[in-house]
Amino acid sequence: MTGNRAAAAAGVAGTSRTFFAAAHVVADPHADVSPDGPAVLDWDATLAFRRHLWSHGLGVAEAMDTAQRGMGLDPEGARELIRRSAAEARAVGGQLACGVGTDQLATPPADPEGPPAPAGLSAVRAAYEEQLELVEGCGAQPILMASRDLAARARGPQDYAEVYGELLRQASGPVILHWLGPMFDPALTGYWGSTDLDEATDTFLEILSAHPDKVDGVKISLLDAGRETDLRRRLPEGVRCYTGDDFHYPELIAGDAEGFSHALLGVFDPLAPLAAQALRSLDAGDVPGFRAVLDRTVPLARHLFEPPTRFYKTGVVLLAWLAGHQDHFTMVGGLQSARSLTHLRRAHQLAEELGLFPDPDLAQARMTRLLSVHGVGS
């Protein structure tokens, strides 16, 4: 233990970049639910964590994959999460963007004898529209998430252009488009109509170019810094790039002579104090200071997001528990068991070296308790 502590930053949004932290949800540990049953959340702790992120001046990206969307958080739970977070954002003046998806199509009907979920692109579009109406009605910025249902039904690039084109025409204001790579969700393999990323990128850019006034920015989660930089340089005028690359974010945010990325990152959930500190340096024009803060967080990020990447949420929630943001290490769907004890112990060590724990003794005691429960010495 080093005893280091990350310095808190004033809760003022950055001026040079927009930072969103994709926030995790806190399960109710007392709920009697099965791993595949409807999610039951501890709403007080879940909303308190969002206030923590806002207190550092970060925006909150709600109901994204970090919130276990599609990995335990059911559609009704996501809707309630969006409604509650939107009310909280209004109360504290926090910036909020919310995921718009189609996950209700994957939910079995309450009546097993009832009609099956509708098929085809029209069903996908209707599901998107239902969630888009909810998010816009709550006053939040929509993030059009990649859809497993669209990936399963689309026959080629034209189907993506049809669905997204109609959604963008309907949107009342600029949205964020989300390209989530298969390392985060294998069901999204071949998104935009091709497994060839060059062809997929061309389709993606064609959709953007047809509706640039309806797109605030794009979130790119491909863990490929070169590809993101190339795509960023090809975006229509006025469309921003939000990096979702939890491996290369310092260099992508810092940018180069031809531009830079903003950020919408799951790793900013545990890194909020340091992300805010780095952003203050960037706002002051101190790029070396920005890199000095964020570069040293990359080993922790790469550890949390190591393959299979989609289970990064387990490490994120562990760190929230160790930092005192919640009083248990229980996750929706029992996902706390998705990483090994060795992985979790290393996450604790890397986070402690960064000073991410307000009370290092508490973090050490909780980690020791977790290991001892499993018969492992610290």
Rank of each mutant, 00 (worst) to 15 (best):
E130T: 05
S34T: 15
P270R: 03
G114I: 10
L105Q: 01
L335Q: 15
A21N: 03
T2K: 06
P142E: 05
P270T: 04
F184D: 11
H56N: 04
L252G: 08
L252V: 07
H374E: 13
G375N: 08
L350H: 01
G165S: 12
G156A: 07
G14L: 01
C138M: 09
E76Q: 14
Q170T: 12
L370D: 03
P142L: 00
K214A: 11
K219W: 11
E199L: 08
A127T: 13
G173M: 11
A10N: 10
F20I: 06
Q349I: 00
R69Q: 15
T203P: 11
R234I: 00
L271I: 13
P29Q: 04
R155T: 07
P112Q: 02
H303D: 05
P273Q: 06
P250G: 04
V298F: 09
P115C: 08
R240S: 10
D224S: 06
F260L: 07
L350C: 03
A63D: 06
S55R: 11
F184R: 14
V135Y: 10
L322M: 06
A45T: 15
M183S: 15
A127P: 13
D36H: 09
E258Q: 12
S194P: 10
D44T: 15
L265W: 05
D65G: 10
R90Q: 14
D295A: 05
D198Q: 06
G315C: 05
G94A: 02
V332M: 03
P236V: 10
E162R: 13
L96G: 10
R240I: 03
G238W: 00
H328T: 12
L144G: 14
E251Q: 07
F329H: 09
G334Y: 00
A272E: 01
I82W: 02
E166V: 12
G77W: 11
T46M: 04
W43N: 03
A123Y: 00
M183R: 12
P236Y: 02
Q364F: 02
V135C: 13
I207W: 12
R345A: 13
E76I: 14
H178L: 08
Q68C: 05
H343C: 02
T342M: 08
A13D: 07
E353L: 03
V267Q: 10
S378M: 15
D246G: 03
F184P: 04
M71D: 10
G289Y: 03
A154Y: 12
L180M: 13
E199M: 12
E113T: 13
F268S: 06
L134G: 06
